[in-house]
């Protein structure tokens, strides 16, 4: 159906433009808060892509976790630390700019090549209808998660636990120690020491 295809392509192009635009905006912006907002825009467009690809669960999780949790966290941190605009400091390492551009170009070339190969490869699956696919539904993801991917699931939960503990350890107030030393003649000296990140 031409109209549906065309519509799909149109949606795709819009979303792609949104994504790329937000991405570039994020990199260019000097104010980190604006960059965070741009990143949220990227995430929303990606959620749209997932919907297009027939993965509603993933799209929902994308919005909830990425845009809703991670970005909120980032915004919290920005607010907490009262981050200011990046000052235009002269670049200390001059070589970084050309290196970055060069690296990016190479990366792009390689990616393009891979994509071309993928596109030209004879492996073809009958074009699944995204709308009617059963793959991305919550039910099937849930089934797969608790049967084939049970071990990664459990490990991931442990990983999250570790992250929680780690985050708490890292972000707590430095411990203040009171060291009491006793002299040879019985006098006590009290010393106040702070455990910082770099003297743990």
């Amino acid at each position: 159906m031409i109209i549906a295809d065309l519509f799909q392509t149109l949606i795709w192009i819009v979303l792609a433009g949104l994504a790329i635009g937000s991405g570039v905006a994020m990199v260019v912006q000097r104010n980190p808060l604006y960059a965070a907002i741009s990143l949220i825009g990227v995430f929303i467009s990606f959620a749209g892509f997932y919907l297009l690809l027939g993965a509603p669960f993933i799209a929902a999780v994308q919005v909830i976790v990425y845009a809703g949790a991670i970005m909120v966290l980032v915004v919290f941190v920005i607010m907490l630390l009262n981050v200011e605009e990046e000052v235009r400091k002269p670049l200390r390492l001059k070589f970084l700019i050309p290196a970055a551009i060069f690296g990016a170009a190479i990366l792009f070339a390689q990616a393009a090549f891979i994509i071309y190969s993928v596109g030209a490869s004879p492996v073809r699956v009958p074009n699944a209808d995204a709308a009617n696919s059963q793959i991305g539904l919550t039910k099937s993801i849930g089934t797969g998660l608790f049967t084939d991917y049970l071990l990664p699931f459990e490990i991931t939960s442990i990983l999250i636990l570790m992250a929680i503990v780690g985050a708490i350890t890292l972000a707590r107030r430095p411990t203040v120690l009171l060291l009491v030393e006793e002299d040879y003649d019985g006098k006590k000296h009290v010393e106040r020491r702070t455990l910082k990140i770099d003297n743990i």
């Binding site: 966290l73 074009n127 999250i160 985050a167 708490i168």
Partner: peptide
């Protein structure tokens, strides 16, 4: 989606969980 294979999405799920954890620790 294009190969009609569930594994990709499951993996994405895991990646997201890891990314969340990483965000927490990284921001810490």
């Amino acid at each position: 989606s294009f190969f009609n294979n569930l594994n990709g999405q499951l993996f994405v799920f895991i990646v997201m969980a890891v990314a969340a954890a990483e965000a927490a620790v990284g921001l810490g």
